[in-house]
Design a protein around this nucleic acid. Sequence first.
DNA 1: GTGCGACTGGGACGACCGTCCCACTTCAGT
DNA 2: ACTGAAGTGGGACGGTCGTCCCAGTCGCAC
Lengths: 198, 198
Amino acid sequence: MARIPASERRNALVEAALRVVSRQGIAQATTRAIVAEAGMSLASFHYAFDSRDELIDELIATVVAREQQAVIPDVVPGQDLRQILESGLLRYLEHLEADPDHEQAMLELTQYALRSAERHPLAVAQYRRYAELAEHSLEIAADAAGTTWRRPVAEVAHVLVAFTDGLTLTWLVDRDDAAARAVARAAADALSRMADPR
Amino acid sequence: MARIPASERRNALVEAALRVVSRQGIAQATTRAIVAEAGMSLASFHYAFDSRDELIDELIATVVAREQQAVIPDVVPGQDLRQILESGLLRYLEHLEADPDHEQAMLELTQYALRSAERHPLAVAQYRRYAELAEHSLEIAADAAGTTWRRPVAEVAHVLVAFTDGLTLTWLVDRDDAAARAVARAAADALSRMADPR
DNA sequence: GTGCGACTGGGACGACCGTCCCACTTCAGT
DNA sequence: ACTGAAGTGGGACGGTCGTCCCAGTCGCAC
């Protein structure tokens, strides 16, 4: 194995861990499985990280920080709010269908964090990030449609996050594209009714 | 230990397993932890069950079959659909706040089932049950409010399940009663707009 | 080139896991 | 009372886990 500074090894191990968690679940993300995925020896693991817990914590932080705007509204002139929101949710659905393992991994990491008091803040940070992204999307969408939210946008954002979570869970279980699209349509419709023309 | 027929031991072990999973998560639900919770010896476990997997499968089936109508609409004469749905969702929220570990366990069991092809149908059955319960509630609510659903009730039920999942996840992470109530209110509002006066 | 700190590999550790074995006890049917 | 089946207890098995140790190797500063 080539000589690699510990800081780079940390990154490589986090990436390998994400792949293992996505593919096999967090329960299977053992130090040995992660190290094999990264093509390293076990000793390199504990040279870069004090413990497996430390890596998992960094994995969660990394993956949350990297979380992209998955539901960027696709602003097409002339569309009303409902249409903009629906296309955004459908875009998220495509993202989910393209890489279901990743979203499943995110859910597992959340639940993992919820199981210990020290890690709970990581889950809170994850959902704060989700809320921020949702808020941003909602502002763009309302602006493009010439509407204003009847309730504080943060509150609407919580609803959108809740909807997205539910959509994710439902699709992961049923893998029913048509049903998920119907949910997305209904969600867009429901959300759009929470705004008034400006 | 008193002599207990194997069939009763199976029940006792499933109950003990549910308590362990709720309290500590499925990863900690080892044969030894379950047996200790049930006050038995390890041998009794493998006398009643061939394997831990067999018990987990039965645990999921049991807990799904037992799933109660958590969001029974509280029909008070004179309430409109939005109010009926909101009180139902708030009732669910109280149920969640009263026993958060149980809902967290349900989520974990779903994810656990999703991780293997053989167990996937258990998760599907779980969500089919959720959808049935939601459908039933929605029919009662619309009927009491003198409204009809604009879309097939099964479709609206999917939305309600998705909303409930999202609500659950959000509250489990933030433990913010006020925010959750706002989400419930918004959800009820959104759902109520999916029906028309009869 | 020499030394020293950074990095590597393999093997080992104790703990815990699911499962199994076997001698033993209890009980129901006769 | 006798017997066979049902149920019990404790200890042991092989395997995997996270972690650690340590001898060895590399690369850079001097």
